[in-house]
Simulated scan of single mutants.
Amino acid sequence: MKRITLFLLTNIAIVLLLGIIARIFGIYSNGLIASALLFGMGGAFISLLISKWMAKKATNARVIEQPRSNEERWLVETVRRQAQQAGIGMPEVAIYESQEVNAFATGANQNNALVAVSRGLLERMSQDEIEAVLAHEVSHVANGDMITMALIQGVVNTFVILLARLVGSIVASNSRGNGHAVYALTSFIAEIIFGLLAMPIVMWFSRYREFHADAGAAKLAGSQKMIAALRCLQTVSAGQLPEQLSAFGINSSPSRDFIRKLFSSHPPLEERIAALQNR
């Protein structure tokens, strides 16, 4: 919590500094910072608050309220045990009907989360490998990754909106045409460009936290089980989770291209395996 608070305060200070600089150069408009914060941070945290509902709708996930089989009973009890070990509230456990091999976790906080696995994962992985995957997702919840990702995305969105509007103001003030139209068009184009430039920052953190979730899974289920699960993932297609869930899946499509790696939410599986072997 202290780390997140310091991160947030630092970035608020930077935003305020940009506002002061903008005022000095005469391109400040009332409410610019407030609106950037509102749309930047507000959108990210609204998405976080409704993330469980959105995830269930997007994947048609069925929450296991009353286990219908030994497999479902084992899933619930395994997540319950891991959640207790990790010191978090019991997440909802769900299955979504997809033959792709994947799983994800989401939720607004550590005590109000959802852990879901695909039917394909249940059919193609051993029990030890499934246990490791569940531990990986529980570790995401315990690490507060959903909240931190929303915070980082919100800060990035705020900077993108603020800088885009500052650029729009500069161009419009030096334009001989319709100032409002120039401002709107320039801000729109600048927001797209700055958004693309900022995305690798968010994706870098996403890749960074995958290593931490793997390490957490190794503590909860054992390093060898987690390595076995990752090796299994090397042999199958990751599939396509909905965009809002892709960063929280256990797996994503590998990429050898440098540019695509910059925009990837997950590090290559071989790097994750190597990190576990070197622990």
Rank of each mutant, 00 (worst) to 15 (best):
K2F: 13
K2M: 10
K2E: 07
R3F: 14
I4R: 13
T5H: 06
L9A: 15
N11R: 09
N11L: 11
L16P: 00
I21H: 02
I21W: 09
R23P: 07
F25S: 03
F25Q: 05
F25C: 05
G26N: 07
G26R: 05
I27Q: 08
Y28H: 11
S29L: 13
S29K: 12
L32M: 15
I33Y: 05
I33L: 13
L38E: 05
L38I: 13
F39Q: 04
G40A: 07
A44D: 04
S47R: 08
S47P: 09
L48T: 04
K52T: 12
W53T: 14
M54N: 11
K57F: 12
A61S: 09
R62S: 13
R62I: 15
R68F: 04
E71L: 14
E72T: 12
E72I: 12
R73I: 12
V76Y: 01
E77Q: 13
T78I: 05
R81V: 05
A83E: 01
A83P: 00
I88F: 03
M90W: 02
M90L: 15
I95Q: 00
Y96R: 01
S98A: 11
V101T: 10
F104H: 03
T106H: 02
G107Q: 04
N109R: 02
V115N: 00
A116C: 10
R119N: 06
G120R: 01
G120A: 07
L122G: 00
M125Y: 07
D128I: 01
E129P: 08
E129W: 04
E131V: 02
E131N: 14
L134R: 03
A135L: 05
H136P: 11
H136E: 05
E137M: 02
E137S: 03
H140D: 01
V141M: 02
M146V: 07
I147K: 06
T148H: 04
M149N: 11
L151C: 12
G154L: 06
V155D: 03
V155T: 06
N157D: 03
N157R: 12
T158D: 03
I161G: 04
L162P: 04
L166T: 08
V167F: 15
V167E: 06
S169C: 07
I170F: 14
I170N: 01
V171T: 09
G177S: 13
G177T: 10
N178Y: 11
N178K: 05
G179D: 03
Y183E: 07
T186F: 10
S187T: 09
I192M: 12
F194E: 06
F194A: 05
M199Q: 13
M203V: 10
D214M: 08
A217M: 06
A218F: 08
A221K: 02
S223N: 11
A228Q: 05
C232P: 00
L233P: 01
T235D: 15
S237L: 09
S237N: 14
S237C: 01
G239I: 06
Q240D: 13
P242A: 00
E243M: 14
E243I: 13
E243H: 11
Q244D: 09
Q244M: 15
Q244E: 10
L245T: 08
N251T: 07
F258K: 06
R260C: 05
K261S: 14
L262V: 09
F263N: 02
F263L: 10
S264Q: 01
S265T: 15
P268C: 08
E271S: 14
R272G: 06
A274M: 07
A274P: 02
L276A: 07
L276Q: 03
R279Q: 15
